[in-house]
Amino acid sequence: MASTRQHRRGLASEAAISHKNSTTSSNISTNVADSPLTRHVTYSGVWHPPTTAPTDTVIATAYRFPMMIPERFVAYSASHLHLPLRRDILHRAIVYEGDKTRQGTASSKHRTELAGSGRKIRPQKGMGMARLGDRKSPMLKGGGVAHGPHPRDFSTDLPRKVYDLAWRTALSYRFRRGQLVLVDGKAELWSAQGAFVRNVFSTNGWGRAAGRSLVITMEKRPNLFSGLQAAPRMGEAYTWNDVDVKDLLSMGRLIIEKEALDKILKRHQSDLTKTYKIVTTTP
């Protein structure tokens, strides 16, 4: 259960390392726990771990969009953005989502649901023809459907912890491949023109040739959203609560606002939070 241990570690241990903050020595703390309810390590002041760099955090660069100017480093827990790839868990999550989103409204009428008389069409015997009941018989034209579809719920179950792990596994997969672009602030464009969006995306190598891009924002960004509708070959944009695991894996890369990523991670860490209790450090 090495991997599970790793997941439990470093829960909620995200520390923002800002070049602006670091000089003003605002306390940036990283809480690391080797086992549940035990050790806490706090770095305060300037984030300076040259001797023992923690292996349970990873550094992500936050960029200013769309110029892609690096703004700062942000540290995320390895259990958030550096999980090993688990295809089986991703598969289960995608099947779960697929089942859940099935409409399930196909409907047909059984003979009992049809309007009509139950009178026997012809006598049972003596006509030299096949036996028949009423007009609603499934073997007659205009009759009912014997085993037809009826509205139902196709959704299947998946343990919450597995689903949450799948979310973070999908994000980790993107991060490990360098396909997670973190945006500092708002991922908004200056113009909603399709030509401009195409220019931005193709200049950065985010367009169709590179598998398109999924932009995830906190709120609807008018120019970005309508711009990508004008240039659908470049990618798609959604707010953070409109995406699922399949979306995270479906395109060439994720361009995600930091705030949106934090929201997603916070919502999908039940397997971490349930097994570990955060204890506030006392001096």
Binding site: I17, M68, G178
Partner: peptide, 22 residues
């Protein structure tokens, strides 16, 4: 980290080469 960020940012500015997070 502060030094690393500044060097990488300046290097990306001078070269135009993007360095990925991993």
């Amino acid at each position: 980290m502060e030094l690393k960020f500044a060097v990488i940012k300046r290097a990306m500015q001078l070269t135009g080469i993007h360095v990925s997070d991993p």
